[in-house]
Nucleic acid binder design. Sequence first.
DNA 1: CCGTTTTACGTAAACGTTTACTCCAATAAG
DNA 2: CTTATTGGAGTAAACGTTTACGTAAAACGG
Lengths: 336, 336
Amino acid sequence: MSYTIKDVAKKANVSVATVSRILNNLPGYSEKTKEKVLQVITEMGYQPNAIARGLINKKTKTLGVLLPAVSDTFASVVLSGIEDMAHDLDYSVMVCNTAKDGIRTMKYLQALREKQVDGIIFISEFFKEEYYNAITAMKLPIVLVSTKSAYDIPFIKVDDEKAVLDGVMYLLERGHRSIGMIAGTKGDTIATIPRIEGYKKALNKQGIAFETKKVVYGDFGFESGIEAAEELLYHNKDVTAIFCSSDEMAAGALSYLYRMSIRVPDEISLVGYDNTKVAEMAIPPLTTVGQPLYEMGKNSVRMLLEREDGQSKSMFMPHKIAERESVKSIDQSTGE
Amino acid sequence: MSYTIKDVAKKANVSVATVSRILNNLPGYSEKTKEKVLQVITEMGYQPNAIARGLINKKTKTLGVLLPAVSDTFASVVLSGIEDMAHDLDYSVMVCNTAKDGIRTMKYLQALREKQVDGIIFISEFFKEEYYNAITAMKLPIVLVSTKSAYDIPFIKVDDEKAVLDGVMYLLERGHRSIGMIAGTKGDTIATIPRIEGYKKALNKQGIAFETKKVVYGDFGFESGIEAAEELLYHNKDVTAIFCSSDEMAAGALSYLYRMSIRVPDEISLVGYDNTKVAEMAIPPLTTVGQPLYEMGKNSVRMLLEREDGQSKSMFMPHKIAERESVKSIDQSTGE
DNA sequence: CCGTTTTACGTAAACGTTTACTCCAATAAG
DNA sequence: CTTATTGGAGTAAACGTTTACGTAAAACGG
């Protein structure tokens, strides 16, 4: 159908080897033939077939990305970083929306293997043993973004505990003493437990006792933020601030508070997590502890590709509080 | 490195042809050998190489998707529909973030061609002649989502004019008489001009004169919504409602109104477009004319793949107003 | 001017599949 | 019992590249 390297060779009166060499600029031809061949190529509109190329040199220049939901803001920002970096390095990316479903993840892993991707990036999902086995079996480089594992697999993420500690300290420094927390999925060893730990430590630094009833769990999504806020306030009439483990949940909390006619930040302060677009768009704009999601995406492909030789090591990315308008400093003496 | 079909054949004492036939369940072997081979396959953990397969039968079972920005809500919902449908049909998808940049689009088009994708889906971007030439040159099926072109290329979108007409009628029916519009990118023949046309027609139906100063342009993004709202209100103190050409711009408008202490919907009503998550999360939740984005994504791959034989035809998807809390009925006599 | 190196190519095998042919044995038909 | 048919396989070419190897001519060294 399309022209092949043979057609080019024939038309240019050279061998396919020569054409190939020119295409890959390897040595072994005169300047004259090079020009000739190049001219024929543009004349015919020849495009090399990456499949054939991939078959022989066992590189497809494509990466696989597994993520829980393309359509959530968090993952899609990471994805866009990955995409941009991949594009710069002449790689393509295949996205696999695992939809929080392990079976599908395994199916994808197999598809990616069959399609001979050069590496896999795994975003923000719990990394099961099953995945580990599958991936090591296929001997593919992999990096984890915004998650980590029990295995020796490089990851790239922020230090959740430290990030939350800073976020809660931010509240504490502004006079808040009764701070609730809307945490992520209960039991999540990556994004929930360390964050609660950070929350505890911050409280502890100020000599404030930790109370179990002040942390409620969600699932990082908007709706769960609504419910969590309701539950939290039901059991804790006195909180003056809530730390939320995702911007979406913070938006949910905001929504609930609005419905209850509780003003933010006048009556209750809110801080989110991630610094996604929803934090910017919220009313009032959310103060949030930001993760450099786009950069994390970029770095993940860099790590993946550099890994070739020396197993590259994991890295922690810096977090940074994005100050906006959802937090009020309160007078410590009055408590409100 | 990995096992090949030859290894399987050898170990099972059959020829590669037989193994291949079994793998593709074509006829030509006894039940006994089938079992034997299958057993060997699982024993060895053999996985076929899709690259080799693709080379010979000229199908890669992968699709290319071009979109302006993965990280915007709109495109990512479409993408997730594409992804799900593709997964069901055992296709993989390569995403290409064109970042509103034509050069990059051309580069992607070339990469997709070299990688021999089976089809291309083009989301929501203006379809340049340059693209048309490139794509027809590679003789690949293509479908346009949420955009259309001057060429004979199947598209799938809602009827923008009609959708806006309905949205504006919704406002009209609730007594609004002075309605502003925050439109998309000026001059956009797909998503701006027809929508303004719909706005005009709705006004016309009620015998209200169209005024140029009541439509201002944005770029579909949040920030542009802020600016557009400001400009609109500066020139039109009397509007009681604003129709926005995207939810994000509506969120921007909301944000501006909040800052100005103008209550929504009490003082000004707002309706958005798209029905993305941001409409749900807004405060107050946005009434918006919804596009079935996820379904559009799903259908696009169906269309693309069915196209093989009879050129499938374009389709319009139904829009639907999602009623939430950003619109107030006003008393016609007072004009509020 | 002869031997050696270098340059500029060409030939063909290889990558891992699929599939058109071929072939033999067993079965069915007459 | 012969002949046609069928079922169960194997052989090898093909897909479009890359690349190891070979080779003739040109360039070079002495």
